[in-house]
Simulated scan of single mutants.
Amino acid sequence: MISEFIIEDFKLTSGSKTLVKTTYQQFGKALGTAPIVLINHALTGNSNVTGAQGWWSAIVGDNKVIDTQRFTILSIDVPGNGFNVNSDYTIKNYKDWQLVDVAKIQVRILEYLGVNELFAVVGGSLGGQLVWELAALKAIKIAHIIPIATDWKATDWLLANCKIQDSILNNSTNPIYDARLHAMTLYRTPRSLKQKFERERDEDSIFKVENWLSYHGNLLQNRFQLASYKLMNHLLTTANVLRNYTSIKDFAQVISADIHLVSVDSDLFFLAEDIWETYIDLCTEKDNVFISEIKSIHGHDAFLIETAQLQNILKPIFETKTHEHNHKHHIVWNR
């Protein structure tokens, strides 16, 4: 069931005040009867994490790795993400927003639901950046922080590509379609496209890779709003958990949760080397930090494609006893 949450006069980090309308969903066990897992969606995602239309049904569901028969699953829509097409939900002043604002709204919803402790917070890409932001607020006790194919900061590479996306979204005559074409080349890799298409053409002599890009451009254009795309792309650029910390090492000293980093070795969006650098920085200050790496030719989207590998990475975390964590269950892959 989709539930609505409204904040009448929410103060953004930028200083402006705004009406916030968003939605959230609950799956699995009833609140108060089981450990709670919060799942954050990525740029074009939403709170539909499981079920027939669920974007993460391979991972979340009955007898899946994140088992709805064992856990209460919460997923909160980023305000303005387009899941509700009602114009009241649209955010036009997108550059006033920061990802930390979304994390603060998550805290408000969790407090409203009476949740003060989470077994895990997990998310990929933008959703993983939001995992970091929520942890940095220290408003909710979290046992496991699981950011996937993401980092705690917006790198120069990410900022550069989001700038290109923003320019396309604000200047193109076909903005969603054109921006998606550019984005798909970041989410995959040259090897992935070579394996998939091998320079083949269709019956009209059009390269199949071009048809594939057009398909994804049209698909997103048919289900996504321009205002949502502008907002979500902008939020990627605002990730930075060091607002209240002097360094990532300082952050590590005050976060008690187990931190499970998951990189993708071929990721061209959130580079694996940056995530491994974060791992090394955290390990100098904190023992309960772990890293796993998805091996794939498919790049950033591998966190959605390589479900078998991700299941193997997440399984030891979600099979542990909820209050007695045994570190020997962790998979840690070293380069």
Rank of each mutant, 00 (worst) to 15 (best):
Y112A: 12
I164V: 08
S57E: 15
L186P: 02
T22W: 06
H327R: 15
C283A: 10
A154T: 04
L137A: 11
I148G: 04
P190C: 00
F83Q: 12
K141N: 08
S172T: 13
N170V: 02
P79M: 08
V241K: 01
T322Y: 12
Q69V: 14
T22E: 10
T320C: 03
L231V: 03
S125D: 09
T307A: 14
N63P: 11
N218I: 01
S172Y: 10
N211R: 13
V49G: 15
R70C: 15
I275G: 11
S192C: 04
G217W: 04
L282P: 04
H325T: 05
G124V: 02
F269A: 05
Y94T: 05
M184Q: 10
K21V: 02
V332D: 12
F119P: 07
Q25I: 00
W56S: 11
Y89L: 05
A302T: 07
L261A: 00
D204K: 10
Q26K: 09
K95H: 08
L12H: 11
N174P: 10
T320N: 15
D202E: 01
G123H: 01
W333C: 01
D178C: 03
H41Q: 11
E203Q: 11
L186M: 02
G217R: 04
R199P: 07
D281G: 12
F71L: 12
A136W: 06
Q195K: 12
K328C: 08
W55Y: 09
V254L: 14
E200P: 07
F207H: 10
F251S: 04
I259M: 06
Q69L: 15
K249W: 05
D96G: 13
N233F: 05
S75N: 08
D250F: 03
S296R: 01
T33L: 09
G123F: 03
N218F: 12
H216V: 01
N211M: 05
N116H: 12
S247I: 01
G123C: 05
W276N: 10
R180W: 07
L193A: 09
D67P: 09
N288A: 09
Y279H: 09
V264R: 04
D267L: 08
D77E: 11
F10C: 03
A257I: 01
V254Y: 10
D274Q: 06
V115Y: 09
A34L: 11
S247A: 04
G61Y: 06
H298S: 14
F290P: 03
H234I: 03
I168Y: 00
P190Y: 02
K315T: 06
D178E: 13
E200I: 00
T246R: 15
N174S: 12
G61T: 07
R180Q: 05
K29H: 12
K328G: 13
D301R: 00
L74A: 03
L235W: 04
T307M: 12
A135H: 05
T185C: 05
Q26V: 04
A160D: 04
R180T: 02
H327L: 13
V209Y: 14
F71E: 14
K163H: 06
Y215G: 09
D101T: 02
I105Q: 07
H182V: 02
